[in-house]
Amino acid sequence: MEMRDSFVDTTTTLLAQEPRTALVLADISAALFTAAAERHPDRVLNVGIREQLMLGVAGGLALTGLRPIVHSYAPFLVERAYEQIKLDLDHQAARAVLVSIGASFDRASAGRTHLSPADVALVDTLSGWTVHVPGHPDEVPGLLRTTVAADGSAYLRLSTLSNGRPYPGDGDLVLVRDAGAGAALLVAVGPTLDAALAATEGLPVTVAYTHRPRPFDTAGLRTLADNEVILVEPYLAGTSARVVAAALADRPHRLLALGVGREELRRYGSAEDHLRWHGLDPAGLRRSVTGFLTPAAADRTPTPAMLGQYV
């Protein structure tokens, strides 16, 4: 079962259990909600291929007291109708739960139109949003139930990429591998964890996991971090750098922020290919981390990720 299947099952249950819940679609995944739409025709609303309307409708539903879940492919949900998120939700003080599929490059072979590495950074321009980036399908039901039951706005970023095991919890940093005092702290977000663990095997690096980059667990970060922090995010590199910098502002520290590069590669292939090209596979991560930890500047051969290049 992939994350989208978990989302469909949990949402279908929520629609049946909680009459405040509504689902707004723009054709994407509509076929998976056929049964739910037949049972709840007034609360499962497929507006067709109209993303501006999808978010406007969500805003209107929320203004009447419903709790809308809005779902589409990440670039169409977050990027295409960004002003509707800003104005039809936030400016109206209307709240919704946005759930995307596609992530950064799940459908790499579809090309740039279906890639959305900047989605979390874009949501991060807004105020008060919770962002969940689950790393395993089994994390999805709990996150979805919790965010729908809450009142705030939230963005759940689902992917076909996944770690080998789930880490339930509310999103505070989970200590996965403790390398002892003085070690660098690597924070892996969502489905980057397994590659980060493989990359740092045998290195003096403590590894922590979170599926909730916003609000980032800054208290946990301050507890676990010494003076070297490595961020590994499955979306735009540096998205959480400002949060880490602010959390450690009183502490001399170094930060390596890894993630997806800004350059449009104009290559197809698979998600695994793009992970490699962006230096997010175990070998690429190990190159970056080793370079970061090596004190002598002369020994620090820039990695592809550092240079924003691909190999």
């Binding site: 007034d42 406007g56 209107g60 539903l61 009447t64």
Partner: peptide, 10 residues
Amino acid sequence: LGLAVGTALG
């Protein structure tokens, strides 16, 4: 108009 459609639906 989009917000109005959502309000009417809600």
